[in-house]
Amino acid sequence: MTLPRLALVPGEPAGIGPELCARLAQTPRTDCTLAVFADPATLQAAADALGLPLRVLAPGARAEQPGDVVVHPMPNVAPVAFGHADPRNAQAVIEALHVGAQHCLDGTFDGLVTGPVHKATINAGGIAYTGTTELLARQAGCDVVMMLANPTVRVALATTHLPLRAVPDAITRDGLERTLRILHRAMRLDFGIAHPRIAVLGLNPHAGEDGHLGREEIDTIAPVLHALRQQGMVLDGPLPADTAFLPAKLRDYDAVLAMYHDQGLPVLKFSGFEQAVNLTLGLPYPRVAVDHGTALDLAGRGIADPSSLFAAVETCARLARAKETA
């Protein structure tokens, strides 16, 4: 079997993404081939700041020694000063994501790995942007589910980047059913779990306390779970979120579906932030992102932890191989 071909987009050029890519290039890979969609000068500057060797190779070349990196040039408009994000480079960041993803859609690459993006800077650059998950879903024209994972737990989200006051209205029967179908399918096909067991959290404290603390569990969540159980899915819930993540309970589940971003992700990040990755389920190709921000205050100093990027590449390569053999 040929090695999976992965496209890597570092993200915000003034953040830690470029230097993490330079660190990644120091170890030749045996599980995939990588091509970085970024500004070559920024990658070189990041490597120089860390005192690391870097040899930029043209698209189609092969990385053979430590420091080799294949780069599809995506030039920045403004000079990059690490630690100081410039809205003038927002378009280059978005273009790199679009181009890398398009190469996955057309089959040139087998998976996409993405670094941290600075949402405020992109919006300040005049581009309406809520998150890369949403951007990739629009480009591919499909429904997706955000799931974060580490060695302890997998947490998928029924809603993603929304103000808290908008969450209840965003949780509908149709939307919840789509989310659970995508999650269930990904557990079977991408992770090789024949009969996945999924814990579904309630929205309200104590999962609504039989309607005394909210009716979303009774009116929306429970009917969907009942209907999908009739079709063979193994779904527990709606469960109170404050006890669902106890280690003894997590051992019974392959994934947890949280109703909103900050219901499930703080637990996941506390249980293993450095090894966590962000997956977009439902795309025609595997997409895995780091589970941290741009860390502008650390950029160019050589102290950023590359563990999440290493884990993202390993996970994406594994998913791409699974998709190839499915």
Results as ranks from 00 to 15, higher is better:
L8Q: 03
V9E: 06
E12N: 02
G15F: 01
P40H: 14
T42R: 08
Q65W: 12
V69H: 10
A78Y: 02
H84V: 12
L97V: 10
G100I: 00
Q102F: 14
D106Y: 07
T108W: 13
V113A: 11
V113L: 12
V113G: 09
P116A: 06
H118V: 08
A120M: 12
A124T: 15
Y129S: 00
E134F: 03
L135P: 15
L136N: 09
R138E: 15
C142G: 02
D143M: 07
L148G: 02
A156I: 02
L162N: 13
A166K: 11
V167E: 00
R173A: 04
R173K: 05
D174Q: 11
H184N: 08
R185D: 06
R188G: 11
L189T: 14
P196N: 07
I198F: 07
V200Y: 03
L203K: 00
P205N: 04
R215E: 10
E216A: 13
D219F: 08
D219E: 06
P223D: 02
H226M: 07
Q231S: 15
L239S: 00
A241E: 01
A241D: 03
T243S: 10
P247N: 04
K249C: 03
D254K: 03
D254N: 04
A255W: 04
S271W: 05
Y285N: 11
R287H: 04
A289P: 05
R301G: 15
G302W: 15
E314L: 11
L319C: 05
A322G: 08
E324P: 02
